[in-house]
């Protein structure tokens, strides 16, 4: 067999060497069998993380609800855990107020930035501005908190003189600045994927750029834009450090942005840094609040996925 390989005068026969090596590569064969299982195990860790999060939140929340009635928790309007009042509404209200302010700031600015980058800016400008804008998304939130407290609040105070040091306005405003790149970047991607043929069709009828944006690009990219906004809102709901530092620690069911409030996330930080003993009701309340927060953000994320899958434009 394999006579053809013994080329004239050649002492080296590679296939023979390979054949000889074959006998001793059982180790290699074993690796080949074990590796996929190891890799699968690692992939499963991410699933375990999700399971762990659900388990943690559920178990400790159930512990909490055996001390405090779930009805009182969700219907009560006063949150004062150190005196035994566990009505979560002020925390949810605080979170929603911050989210609302952030959305009012980020959606117009983010969308307009996306329109500018996708439709008006030339390639050179886009390639400079887009990465710079994305730097905003990479700045640690504790730095934003510092900025909100030491710069934005004094700035607003010069306009609204009786604004307190801790207020929802500057916290929400800075959260908004932080999520601008999310809205801008994802919306721009959606606008970019609108095929040029659609634009050219409108230009061919004598439309101005603005008309093309309103009548062609925005409607065509709508689902991507909406998904980006929903994701950004979810991000604002879960934001912690900015509101902890700048928005105060006063559970306060109000929609007055100049007041000091407390969000769900800020409460969790406050309780975790205080002298909260393991197993106390306050300790468990961390998880009941965390659970509520998790449901909010998960709902938003699923909604965003649903929107972009359901209404995906097929060109």
């Amino acid at each position: 067999m394999d006579k053809g390989l013994q080329s004239e005068g050649n002492k080296l026969n590679v296939q023979d060497l390979i054949e000889r090596n074959k006998q001793k590569t059982t180790f290699g064969q074993r690796i080949e069998k074990v590796i996929p299982w190891f890799l699968l195990l690692c992939a499963i860790i991410s699933v375990l993380t999700t399971v762990g999060i659900l388990f943690t939140l559920l178990r400790e929340s159930i512990g909490f609800f055996s001390n405090v009635s779930i009805i009182d928790f969700y219907t009560g309007t006063s949150w004062s855990p150190w005196s035994g009042e566990y009505g979560v509404a002020p925390l949810i209200g605080g979170t929603l107020l911050i989210t609302l302010i952030a959305t009012v700031v980020a959606v117009p600015l983010g969308l307009m930035s996306a329109i500018f980058l996708s439709e008006y800016a030339n390639d050179k400008v886009r390639r400079v501005i887009k990465p710079i804008l994305e730097v905003l998304a990479g700045i640690p939130t504790v730095v934003y908190g510092y900025f909100a407290l030491t710069f934005v609040t004094p700035m607003f105070q010069s306009i609204i003189p009786d604004l307190g040091i801790f207020n929802a306005l500057s916290g929400g405003f800075v959260v908004g600045i932080m999520i601008i790149p999310m809205v801008a970047s994802l919306s721009e991607d959606a606008m970019n994927s609108v095929p040029n043929a659609l634009r050219e069709g409108a230009y061919g009828l004598g439309a101005t750029k603005l008309e093309v944006v309103y009548k062609v690009v925005l409607p065509a990219a709508l689902s991507g834009i909406v998904a980006s906004i929903v994701l950004a809102i979810s991000r604002a709901i879960g934001e912690t450090m900015i509101v902890t530092i700048a928005a105060g620690a006063t559970p306060n069911l109000t929609f007055d942005p100049t007041e000091s409030i407390q969000t769900m996330t800020a409460f969790i930080v406050q309780a975790a840094t205080g002298d909260t003993t393991f197993g106390s009701t306050i300790y468990y309340s961390l998880y009941a609040v965390g659970m509520t927060l998790f449901v909010f953000t998960l709902g938003m994320n699923l909604l965003a996925q649903y929107i972009s899958r359901k209404f995906r434009e097929e060109y």
Binding site: I53, T56, L231, G238, T265, L286, G290, F294, T297
Partner: peptide, 11 residues
């Protein structure tokens, strides 16, 4: 990837 970081803290 969309879970708030503070929830990871609780985990």
């Amino acid at each position: 990837a969309g879970v708030p970081s503070i929830v990871f803290g609780l985990l």
